[in-house]
Every structure is written in C-alpha cells, then in structure tokens.
Design a protein around this nucleic acid. Structure first.
Lengths: 217, 217
DNA sequence: CGTGGCGCTGACCGTCTGGTCAAATCCGGA
DNA sequence: TCCGGATTTGACCAGACGGTCAGCGCCACG
C-alpha cells in the first residue's frame, strides 16, 4: 500500500496549512497565470512555469498534482473575481448608472488584469473544456437573474428596450476586446494613443445612446 | 551540393503546378484550419492534421516545409477574406446603411467561418507573432482610410459623432464574440435560442441608436 | 540536542513531437 | 511500353514534455 508523502497537499481540497505552502502555491499560480495567458495551456510547459516561479519542476508537482491542476485552479479562482462586478449590479440603483458602472469596472479589469482576460478567452476558444459545467450552472443562473433585472428596467421605461442577454454579451465583448486584442488595437491606433482611455469615453457614449429611453419619440 | 527533390514545392512562393499539388495543398490547409482553430498552434500536432487530411505526416511535409508554414499560410489567406467587407465599405453609399451592411456581413462571417475567427483570435491572444507586421502595415492603412471616411460622415452630420477607430473595434468585437465565445453564449442562452439570429437584430438596433444623427437635440 | 516530517531536488522514464531520409510506388508523356 | 520525375510512406531520430522517485537537507518542536 502507499506510504510516504503523508501530507502532500492535494489540489485545493484540503486547507492550505503551512505558510510556506500558501506562499509557494501563490507563487506558482502567479507564474502559471503569466505563462498560461501568454501561450495557452498546451503551449505552456512545466519548465516555463517553474522558471517563472523560481522553483524546480518537481517542486511544482509537490504543490499541484499536475499541470492541468494548476490551470483548473487558476480558472476557478478567475471566475469569481471576473463576475464580481456583475454581481454588484444593484436593482435599487439608477439603471443607466448601474450599467455604466459595470461597463467601466469591466474595462478597468481588462486593463489591470489582461492576463486573466486572455486566460479566460483561451479557455473559451478551446470550447471551455474545464469550465463548461460552471458556465451553464452558476454563470447562467447569475446572468439569468441580472437579465431579469435589466428587463424590469426596460419594462418600466427607465432604459430603452433591449435584449438583456445580448446587452451583457456586448459589455463583455467590448471590454474584453481591449485586453485580448491589445496588440491589434495598439498596432492600428499607433503610438501616442492610450486605448483604454479612449475606450472609456467611447463605451460610455455607446451605452448611453443605446440605453437612452424614448430615443426618438 | 543538394540534389534530389528537385521540384519540391516550397511554401507558396512558386506557382502550384500539378493539380495533385493544388488538391493536396487545399486538403492540408482545410485540415490545418480545422485543427489549429480548435487547439491553437502549439496545441495542434502534425499527426492530428495529417489524420484530418487523410494523408501521412511525411506527405504533409512534402507540401509544406514545416508546421509553422501551414499556419502562416492559413493566416495570410485569412487576412484577405477577413477584411474584404471592410474594403467594400463605400464612401458613396448611405453612411448608416454602409456601416450596418458591414456589421451584418461580419456577423454572417462569424457564423459561417467560426474556425477562421478562432484561428485569428488565437493568434491575437498570443501577441500576433506571425502577423504583427501585417497589422501595423496593410491593416493599419486600410483602417486609417476607412476611419477617415467615417469621420467625414460624422463631420457632415450624416451620422452621429463617433471615434471611427473605436467604432470599427466595436464592430469587430461584437461580431467576432459570437464566434469566439460561442460556447459561453450558447450555455447562457440555453437551448432553443439561435445566437446569431438574435445578435443580428440586437446589433442592428445598437448601431442604429449609436449612429443616429442629432440624437437628442 | 535529537528527530520526524515537511520541503526540495537531481536523475530518470516513457511518451510524444516536429522533422528527416532512403526507398518504394505512381503516373503522364514520348 | 518504358522512363524520369512526382508522389507517398515506413522507419527512424533527437529533443522536449509531463511526471516519478529515492533520497537529502532543514526546521520546528519536544
């Protein structure tokens, strides 16, 4: 029977005990984010991650059972942070301000956490093999709730009538685009432009016009 | 000196002579598109592509000098098709109709050519190592020209004032999102929804409201 | 000042991967 | 029919990859 390695930390199941464990797990996840977001899952190697973390490859595998485990851990951590601003959208607030705040916050996150955005985009492009369950579960439930809220605002005439699901999609698409396609955006704008500053006022204008109630009547 | 393989086809430099060559090159590119778009460049293997093409691996390398050569060929072919609708935007047309036609065509392409869209997105996420030159060259020139055109429309009061560059970015982001994040979109909408049909009317509405001249005054 | 277990590592393994090569097969034109 | 080049392939290679393992240091605690 198996002996040895009696307390090898497995995945994220148990409580991370030692502070060394906590520190090294965080170091590894940080390095994993750096590498995975730049090269994708299959394009990244344990050696790359180990080097970025300043640890040896076997040491990585002492804290995580496999390369995939690091990836999965990153993705599940990500989903929480990523959706927090959507959760914060408040039915009691002023509708256009709530939506615009969400747009602004999401754009901020694209600027400050482009690696997370790319990691997520990569996962989606591959067909979301690791998070598909989460998508049609938690995420769908959250979006359903918020969509109902937005629909309520539309029906009350506080914002123009819009499909709330596609409104949310368009917020995601427009904000994450500036992180995921950063190279293209910068190549086209040329030097001397800050994509994110310009995007902020552009998106504010776009959603203001889109949501203005009684646009023509 | 090198003898043998006197007429081995190299890249896309020479004229593809035989019809066998033409057929097989097309078969390989089709298979490469299938595999690369699903797994990314590093995530795809020559064996996968060979299997998808129904050819042997050495045979692949008889027609293309390397895995990367297949990838590059696909990307450069792609850029042309991908930008054709933008090229077709006509200064002489009715501005809103020209822009909306572009949006519709781009959305159509997302639906009909999702593999190309994902291939391109993958390349962007990795920092566009193979097409960076093209981005800041041809692409930038094309976008500059069309942006100037759109700015002219704005200044003439035929559409509302908008930053033309970010207008173009938003068209790309909103249409390609439905191809690249297809899994997520479908997971959230649930069965019984056709994302692309809904997207068409949503985007038409969005850009109509965005571009309507004299929105409030 | 032991000592037991946590933390860490060099060496190693089996597999996969991109690519090569010599040889076999195919095929159109003379 | 025959031939030379075009096409195809099985066998192979060197390196990279994810992962394993036995053992070594080190440190907290008694």
């Amino acid at each position: 029977m198996t002996q040895s390695k009696p307390s090898k930390p497995v995945g994220a199941a148990q409580r991370p005990q030692t502070r060394i464990q906590k520190r090294n797990r965080e170091t590894i996840l940080e390095a994993g984010l750096e590498v995975f977001s730049a090269f994708g899952f299959r394009g990244s190697t344990l050696d790359q991650i180990a080097k970025a973390a300043g640890l040896s490859k076997p040491n990585l595998l002492y804290y995580f059972p496999s390369k995939e485990a690091i990836h999965i851990e990153l993705l599940s951590e990500l989903m929480d942070d990523w959706l927090a601003p959507l959760r914060a959208m408040d039915a009691a607030g002023e509708p256009r301000e709530e939506i615009l705040r969400y747009v602004r916050r999401k754009l901020e996150m694209s600027q400050e956490m482009p690696r997370e955005s790319r990691l997520f985009a990569n996962e989606m492009l591959q067909g979301a093999p690791h998070v598909l369950a989460g998508l049609s579960g938690d995420l769908k439930a959250l979006v359903d709730a918020k969509a109902a809220m937005i629909r309520g605002w539309s029906e009350d005439g506080r914002i123009a009538p819009v499909d709330p699901y596609h409104l949310i999609f368009s917020i995601w698409a427009l904000t994450q685009h500036y992180a995921d396609f950063d190279v293209q955006v910068r190549a086209i704008l040329g030097p001397g432009h800050d994509p994110f500053i310009e995007a902020e006022s552009y998106l504010e204008m776009l959603f203001t016009r889109l949501l203005a109630p009684d646009p023509g009547r």
